[in-house]
Design a protein around this nucleic acid. Structure first.
Length: 424
RNA sequence: GUGACUGUAGCUCAGUUGGUUAGAGCGUCGGUCUGUGGAUCCGAAGGUCGCGAGUUCGAUUCUCGUCAGUCACCCCA
């Protein structure tokens, strides 16, 4: 199949019925976020490149090799949004939203990362996320985690796991870094090449190594938890008991480190086994220093980002073939004359009914049209042929109970009332 | 960015030790059934065998390149 054009590598089209599932997910997200008192923010799909370099961190993979960066016609360096947090903070600063006190925002839309695509990883993907600004305490951490967990729970997904960790703050993390370096340095010669590189760039990442060679050294490494300073420990302990009280199960996972520079204290991840190597569907944490580092006031913040494609994959793994309930009506005209009579009725039904009205305008037999009605999962069929035309009536067939009844065609209004009464 | 595997009809896949007209199931369309539905049976349409080059008398088959997909690494949503 030599199509001339294809979607660019790593991008995908959402066609029915997948587009419908995405739509439904978005609708639920809007309702859920509103229930938690969050309001939506939309920002441009591209921003100044410098915003991401400063916001995400110059040493991160995102900035070093994954950004879609281009120069516009006047030579400005712009970048397609690789993540939402920095733009949200930028916009909040630009519109002085922090002056109003604590701020709760959510976003939903595409991000772009130049990566090698594979299952659950795309160059354009869609994220839903929330940012909660202005609360330094663990209540805010609980709030955003609950919100994410509600979404998962609301869909009845049972194999999702909440992983939790604290990576300390700028007071205690340096000491832990030093301790890690001190622990690993004597053994570097026997460890993986990967780890030798990591110790320079991000010693915390050593803990993440899956290389069997490294395992003994990782296991004997000092635990971060024992290095937490008193305030960080207190924060972490409080969050854990809050989660217990809220009935949200979690696993302490010291290997969750987060790749973006701005995280501190709480970090968490929701994972699912159905996603394969990209098991993380939602990741977030606290980033108290970010607003200030982007030139704003000292505003604490916590939030998460959730991958919508991956979320949909979880849903599909769960209920692959649940049949949609029947809904709406299929208008069936047999012959040209019946079509002319039915066309204005279809128009009126579409103005009036909330359920969908389906219609096919080809010259087809009744059998074929009923098959189409089935495909559309219509609840009723309104059949108009020469017999009915002569009698000034139509046949209203209940496709679920397989029963017919005749309805008068004279008044469209009466017909509509009948249909509404019938549950449309 | 690295490595491995894959690429034949709308979908899932056969197949050709290189040889005239490339197959099946599902789906679509039509008939069976002048007008009552996810079934049966019959039939039809639908393919530059991802794209390009090379080897060869001849390539869908072999080789190389390229594009795309899958998986792992890296990293993340």
């Amino acid at each position: 199949m030599a199509e001339n054009f294809r979607a660019p590598r790593g991008t995908q089209d959402f066609v029915p019925p997948e587009s419908g599932r995405l739509n439904e997910l978005e609708a639920r997200i809007h309702v859920l976020a509103a229930r938690f008192g969050y309001r939506e923010i939309r920002t441009p799909v591209f921003e100044s490149t410098e915003l991401f370099v400063r916001g995400v961190g110059a040493q991160t993979d995102i900035v070093e090799k994954e950004m879609y960066t281009f120069a516009d016609r006047s030579g400005r360096s712009l970048t397609l949004r690789p993540e939402w947090t920095a733009p949200v903070v930028r916009a909040a600063l630009e519109h002085h939203l922090f002056a109003l006190g604590p701020l709760r925002l959510y976003y939903i839309g595409p991000i772009f990362r130049y990566e090698r695509p594979q299952k659950g990883r795309y160059r354009q993907s869609h994220q839903f996320g929330v940012e909660c600004f202005g609360f330094p305490g663990p209540e805010a951490d609980l709030e955003v985690i609950s919100l994410a967990w509600e979404l998962v729970r609301g869909y009845g997904i049972d194999d999702a796991v909440l992983n939790l960790n604290s990576i300390g703050d700028e007071r205690c993390r340096p000491a832990y870094r030093d301790a890690l370096i001190a622990h690993f340095s004597p053994h570097l010669a026997e460890m993986s090449e990967e780890s030798r590189l990591r110790i320079e760039r991000n010693p915390l990442r050593l803990l993440d190594s899956k290389d069997p060679v490294d395992v003994p050294y990782v296991q004997s490494a000092p635990a971060l938890e024992s290095f937490l300073c008193a305030p960080c420990r207190e924060h972490f302990d409080a969050l854990k008991s809050y989660l217990d009280l809220a009935g949200i199960p979690f696993t302490i996972n010291p290997r969750i480190v987060r790749g973006l520079d701005y995280y501190g204290r709480t970090v968490f991840e929701i994972t699912s086994s159905v996603l394969g190597a990209q098991s993380s569907v939602c990741g977030g944490g606290r980033y108290d220093g970010l607003v200030q580092s982007l030139g704003g006031p000292d505003v604490p913040a916590v939030g998460f980002a959730l991958g919508m494609e991956r979320f949909l994959m979880m849903l599909q793994a769960r209920d692959s073939q649940a049949q949609a309930p029947r809904r709406g009506l299929q208008a069936i005209a047999l012959g040209a004359q019946a079509r002319t009579v039915l066309a204005p009725i279809v128009a009126e039904l579409r103005r009036t009914l909330e359920a969908p009205t389906f219609a096919d305008y080809l010259e087809r037999k009744l059998l074929a049209q009923l098959k189409i009605a089935d495909g559309n999962r219509a609840r009723y069929a309104l059949i108009l042929g020469s017999d009915e035309l002569a009698a000034g009536e139509a046949v209203l067939r209940d496709l679920e109970h397989r029963s017919d009844r005749r309805v008068p065609l004279g008044s469209i209004r009466v017909l509509v009332e009948l249909l509404v009464e019938a549950g449309l």
